[in-house]
Design a protein around this nucleic acid. Structure first.
Length: 878
RNA sequence: GGGCAGUUAGCGCAGUUGGUUCAGAGCAUCUGCCUUACAAGCAGAGGGUCGGGGGUUCGAAUCCCUCACUGCCCACCA
């Protein structure tokens, strides 16, 4: 056996290992979960875009989920992680349209069904990619449950919920100003608009006052603070705007009634530049007096505020844009021109006509479509479907306020509250074909402005409902017109956790009862962090610009990348990508790999257990239990990076550097059975603890560690409850490390070879249960209890204990004295501060007894240390 | 414009109810080592006025005030 193991490469190669074990896990159905008597632990994957590929944000998110799921599984819970994808209607439709365009096909030339066929083809081609990538990462999802937001079950659920909410009055249809994406030609929700600071210009346009030839009492008006513009063509008002191309839609000019600058404009009419339309000057306190000139052009069709003004003041609405943001027939000028082009042209025309007073540089925020990032969103007035959010906010807020539902980290609680409290109705309709078609059916009416419709699951039900409407008793199915629009993707996403278990179509089914009701899932409410509606989406977006995760996996192995991510991302903070972190992860893999090579290389024989090994076995059992408890605590607080770091150190420092060195037989010597068994047991436990973080290498080594049956896996090896660790022993080991380090320092300073066995003098004797470990790791011949150390020995202190190594040849007395004196000075200062504290009556009276006691001990320790040092100094100076 | 976080070693961070030698771990850096598991390694070392100032307290990285800077969120100033 050892012969074979010893031929293992000195470097771990993840490539061979990872695919092999993933296939093993999948083919043995190890990710699968069905309800049983165990406690359930369920995470529902926030469905990534079907069109997407993994980026670092996904990687982090899914690594975290996989760690939690694997850990829960190893705690004996019935762990289920349901994967799925999201149909991402707007993004997918855009990509399909683009591909069709490349083939010379225009969307508008296709029927809805034809287009959908292309979309499905596209989805089938690209849809699985992201899920394949998750497999590379090691995600232990139950793939048999893979769902898609547009599969049959989910689609039925979505429509059912829509009809239900409509019937209850939470969904309505209305003419509203919405965010319009002119490229995708669809409405967007507020959440799909991203505002960007942009350098632009503020154009000051002249609006001549209609029919005003001479202003009486002009001087007096000026004296009262009016700012009156006048040129050879007459009196004019100046309006500042960033969007001069919208002047064709102006139907009023508005001033603040209290604005002293513009009093003279009250009750007058002005002429829209170039257009020539005469509009009223209206007054509204909405207008900021300080901004620009205090004169606002009002374009009710193209600005949300102007829309409100238009309603208040009964203004005409002129929609000068087509759906693709070209100028519409309603405009007197520039018909058919693109809005951006129009802006350039109109500015030139205005200049030429002398209608621009001045142009200033200006920075403002422009909304862009989240999915078509190069397309500025246009406010547009149109009929859309809305969900009344107030009702849902009222349900959702208290759960978080009273901590029924928790965020990790907690700071997101406030963000969530603010977001929900200020929430506006959600525009849920999209003018897209790819998505859940809105289950509304329009009935013929005598006027275009009038809408009569029914909302129903399907055509038959719609017909039934329609026939109950007075006047439509005899309507035929062919007269119903199914709404062309689709629902916002997020309308299906929010139902995802329920619809996965078919809880909407089939309420109360066995699976939903077992996995879903969150109050039955002790831990599930905590993980809402991963399912935080739009918040989660926003958080992961900032991680978009990172390197290709698959390349990283190729380079460092999935385990290495997973670990790099955990090291980089303390809970809740954005990750900062750095190659060196993955490198550190990879190096750790290698460390584990080599520790395994060492252990498996040992020959076992019937020899007596060395004392050092016996002591090391005892110590490490306690060390392991201590770590077990710490890791458990970190997990309970979702501090996965901290848990990882504890294990990293446990394996590297405690196990490899100390334990293995302590039990390692001399070259060519065999290993005793007891130590070997304990070592294998520890190794097994370390692998289990590490498995959630690094699933592949741990499986590989665990399988090698012992005979395993086919289908057996570390995935289901249990992580036990921590047992009480003996803190005295851990403290004793800490001393051991210091003593060994002390001897090693002496070796280094005196240039003594490691092979030379030394004697260690312990002044006053050594009281430590791990003496044999010290002897072995410090390379000692013996440890001597002495009352006084050799005058020429190299000395060091551990706590209050003094040690010395007699060395051949003399020591540098001068240097030694200097060092001791510096130490002495420091310790005296320390003592002084402690004494000062203790002599302060208020401290002694007010501080807790334990603290005072601690200070007394510090004082005693310092005094004894000083005494020792003084004596040593005297000896040296002799 | 409003709100919320944060500022601790070169870097990214931990530090729980103020008190145990509490100023920390990791990476990086420096020094010495190819010691028979591992140079992707081993053994060591250095490095911080805890953003500035003030206050409360016997005692402050920790609590309060204030200033500075950074980040995030929200908002209709054309």
């Amino acid at each position: 056996m050892s012969e074979k193991e010893n031929t293992l490469a000195t470097k771990y190669d993840p490539k061979e290992v990872e695919d092999k074990w993933y296939q093993y896990w999948e083919s043995h159905d190890l990710f699968k979960s069905v309800p049983d008597e165990r406690e359930p632990y369920c995470i529902v994957i926030p469905p990534p875009n079907v069109t997407g590929v993994l980026h670092m944000g996904h990687m982090l998110n899914n690594t975290i989920q996989d760690i939690l799921i694997r850990r829960a599984r190893m705690e004996g819970k019935n762990a289920l992680w349901v994967p799925g994808t999201d149909h991402a209607s707007i993004a997918t439709e855009a990509k399909v349209v683009k591909r069709l365009a490349e083939q010379g096909i225009r969307k508008r030339d296709l029927t809805r069904d034809e287009f959908l066929k292309h979309a499905w083809d596209w989805t089938h081609e690209h849809g699985g990619i992201i899920l394949q990538q998750l497999r590379k990462l090691g995600a232990s999802c139950d793939w048999s449950r893979t769902a898609f937001t547009m599969d049959e079950t989910r689609s039925k659920s979505v429509l059912k919920v829509f009809v239900d909410l409509y019937d209850k009055g939470y969904i309505y249809r209305g003419l509203r100003m919405v965010n319009w994406d002119p490229k995708a030609q669809t409405a967007l929700s507020n959440e799909e608009v991203i505002y960007k600071e942009e350098k632009s210009h503020l154009f000051y346009l002249k609006y001549y006052v209609d029919g005003l030839e001479a202003l009486e009492n002009e001087e007096q008006l000026r004296a009262e603070g009016n700012i009156i513009h006048k040129d050879e063509k007459g009196y004019y008002a100046v309006v500042a705007t960033t969007r001069p191309e919208t002047i064709m839609g102006d139907t009023a000019m508005c001033i603040n009634p209290k604005d002293p600058k513009n009093q003279w404009l009250k009750g007058r009419k002005v002429i829209v530049p170039l257009v020539g339309r005469v509009i009223n000057v209206i007054e509204d306190r909405y207008v900021e007096i300080e901004f620009g000139t205090g004169c606002l052009k009002v374009t009710p069709a193209h600005d949300p505020n102007d829309y409100v003004l238009g309603k208040t003041h009964n203004l005409e609405t002129i929609d000068i844009f087509n759906a693709d943001a070209t100028i519409s027939e309603q405009s007197p000028l520039y018909v058919g021109m693109d809005r951006m082009e129009c802006r350039k042209v109109i500015v030139e025309d205005l200049k030429a006509a002398g209608l621009i007073e001045k142009i200033e540089d200006y920075e403002n925020k422009v909304g862009y479509s989240e999915r078509n990032s190069d397309t500025a969103v246009e406010p547009r007035l149109c009929m859309q479907w809305f969900l009344k959010m107030k009702h849902f906010a009222e349900i959702a807020l208290p759960c978080v306020k009273n901590d029924e539902l928790k965020f990790h980290p907690a700071k997101y609680k406030n963000i969530y509250n603010v977001w929900l409290e200020g929430i506006q109705d959600w525009c849920i309709s999209r003018q897209l074909w790819w998505g859940h078609r809105i289950p509304a059916y329009f009935l013929p009416t005598d006027s275009e402005d009038k809408e009569v419709y029914v909302v129903a699951l399907n055509e038959e039900e719609a017909l039934e409902k329609a026939r109950k409407i007075p006047g439509y008793e005899n309507i035929e199915a062919s007269q119903l017109r199914h709404d062309e629009d689709a629902l916002d993707t997020w309308f299906s996403s929010w139902l995802w956790p329920i619809s996965l278990f078919d809880g909407i179509n089939n309420p109360g089914n066995e699976e939903i009862k077992y996995y879903y009701p969150t109050n039955d899932l002790v831990t599930a409410p905590d993980i809402i962090f991963f399912w935080v509606d739009k918040l989660g989406r926003k958080m992961s977006k900032s991680l978009g610009n990172s390197p290709d995760p698959l390349k990283l996996i190729e380079q460092f192995g999935a385990d290495g990348v997973r670990m790099g991510l955990m090291l980089a991302a303390p809970a809740g903070n954005d990750i900062l990508y750095d190659d060196s972190l993955c490198e550190q992860g990879r190096n750790f893999n290698n460390k584990i790999w080599n520790a395994f090579r060492l252990v498996k290389g040992w020959e076992v024989a019937d020899v007596e257990q060395p004392e050092a090994s016996r002591q090391a076995v005892l110590w490490f059992r306690n060390q392991l239990n201590d770590a077990l408890a710490t890791v458990k605590d970190h997990f309970s607080k979702f501090r996965l990076s901290d848990a990882m770091m504890v294990l990293y150190r446990l394996f590297w420092e405690e196990f490899s550097a100390w334990y293995l060195e302590a039990v390692k037989p001399a070259y060519g010597q065999p290993m005793d059975r007891a130590t070997m068994q304990a070592t294998l047991e520890y190794f097994d436990m370390l692998l289990r603890l590490l498995h959630p973080f690094m699933p592949f290498i741990t499986e590989e080594l665990w399988q090698h560690l012992d005979e395993r049956k086919d289908g057996e896996s570390i995935m289901y090896a249990l992580i036990p409850e921590p047992q009480q660790a003996d803190q005295e022993l851990l403290k004793a080991m800490a001393d051991v490390k210091e003593i060994v380090a002390g001897v090693r320092n002496v070796r280094k300073q005196k240039n003594l070879p490691n092979k030379e066995q030394l004697t260690l003098q312990a002044v006053g004797g050594l009281n430590n249960p791990f003496e044999a470990i010290i002897t072995k790791l410090a390379g000692l011949e013996k440890i001597e209890a002495v009352t006084e150390k050799d005058a020429t020995a190299a000395a060091f202190m551990v706590g209050t204990a003094e040690f010395a190594v007699p060395v051949a040849g003399s020591i540098d007395v001068e240097a030694e004295i200097k060092k001791l004196e510096a130490d002495l000075e420091y310790t005296r200062g320390f003592l002084a501060s402690v004494e000062k504290k203790l002599s302060n009556e208020r401290f002694v009276a007010n501080a807790p007894a334990a603290v005072v006691e601690g200070e007394r001990k510090k004082k005693a320790d310092a005094e004894s240390k000083i005494a020792t040092m003084e004596q040593a100094l005297q000896t040296l100076k002799k």
